[in-house]
Nucleic acid binder design. Sequence first.
DNA 1: CGTACCTTTGACGGCTGTCAAAGGAAGTGG
DNA 2: CCACTTCCTTTGACAGCCGTCAAAGGTACG
Lengths: 262, 262
Amino acid sequence: MTTAPCFQAAMGRYFALSDDDCRMLEHLERHTAPASKDRVLWLLGARVQNLFILQSGWACTVRDTGEGERQIIELLLPGDIIGLREFTFRRHGSEARMISAGSVSTFTHQHIVDLVAASTSLAVSLFATIGRQEALLTERMLVTLHRSARVQVSHFVLETYLRLSKIQPVDPGRMPFPISQRLLGQILGLSPVHVNRTLTALERDGVLEKHRAHIVIHDPRRLHAEADFDDDYLSDRVDGLSERLAELREGDASFAVSRSGS
Amino acid sequence: MTTAPCFQAAMGRYFALSDDDCRMLEHLERHTAPASKDRVLWLLGARVQNLFILQSGWACTVRDTGEGERQIIELLLPGDIIGLREFTFRRHGSEARMISAGSVSTFTHQHIVDLVAASTSLAVSLFATIGRQEALLTERMLVTLHRSARVQVSHFVLETYLRLSKIQPVDPGRMPFPISQRLLGQILGLSPVHVNRTLTALERDGVLEKHRAHIVIHDPRRLHAEADFDDDYLSDRVDGLSERLAELREGDASFAVSRSGS
DNA sequence: CGTACCTTTGACGGCTGTCAAAGGAAGTGG
DNA sequence: CCACTTCCTTTGACAGCCGTCAAAGGTACG
């Protein structure tokens, strides 16, 4: 039951947080419990209530698409917040479940409102977080719609490698990857058969080597080229907002004042 | 230079806004100017600075995908805010441009910070807005990855019809639709040739009839079936948050207080 | 009246899905 | 420690949706 401030680190990626901000984030991570593989965090159609912070292990949100097919919408890694995109909805439009065993912190959607009310910088950090998650989704869509299966697989592996590297050092020669070929197909919208053919080809060409729960990246540069990768969308850089936050903190409410009515 | 409170109406979809909130939104819509067809609002890679409220006309955000192909990421209709998903980024990961002539209100990303600082209910409404935009993207991805071109086209037309209907009455027999077949292909990830074949088939079967700038929906119910449509993701219903906002407004900061202690 | 863009149609090819079956690897219970 | 079950991986054959290429007709606009 570690209380590694996983989420604090993630939220602090965009700009420095105050001590008060950190205390509030700690509060969110207070109720942490282990979660087994395949543990369901919420079901499709369930009333929105709880959000989660993934402390360890991998998770995903997923939708069934008629005819028994499933599509993974987002892959969540440690430090990610689960449910932010849906916290203003009445009911969940997806299912959320653990991919591997791990642990999650639980809190309610009303806590998010409290956070937003209490701290502008945390609110903006949440916008930054949701924006990054959406950028992942956008990039996935671009790749799945316009690139071959080979590029898709390469792109996803590299993206995941880069995301993981942000939260912990990762050895390209042995990167954690608890994703079966079937699941990989559900992430990319490919059939498991074709995923297998693609992986076999990538292994034959010495690009990477997928094992049951890890991947060997033989040549990161080669993979980068295979994936035709442009990593702008993974950037945590924010611009011009921290300055504005500082001004607001110092009482310059030039705009905010004008609201309360002349 | 109308000051139709287009955006206020959109922001008020989730829960009632106070007079102060409305005044602040008016402020955002102060600088409104006409925008011609194909007017570029920002370019890929440009520094993030301005956001826009689409007062009239249609717009989109778009990405080039190598090899001269383009993918429309989101379609923006009157009342939509343009740039919210990227306002915490340093540079734009997309291009934004007008699809048809219209008018837009312009303000800076720092204004969003001011808004969030000044009003919790507006901040939460912004989260609701960004969440709905992301839901559109998710649904588009599910349909494009797993359904035939026929379903994709039907789904998109119906979705657009329902979105439009939320902001103005729409006659199914003559719905505005300033989208060329080429553009429709860029939205769905299909070739213009195949879009044409699909539309031809849908017209032959009496489902709809696309003209240069409008669509005739012969039988909405039939279209609904063709699209295998589930409109949950278009819901504006929010749950449990307005109550919390009211409590906070009345000074109940039970959570916010507990943060700084024990 | 010409230019540019949009729409339409046909032929052809390929990437990827489906179906089917067999071999492996991991976990379970006796 | 072994049988059994279940899931994952692998391979082959075949089909189909959709992209590409090409060309012609239509429509708006200057």
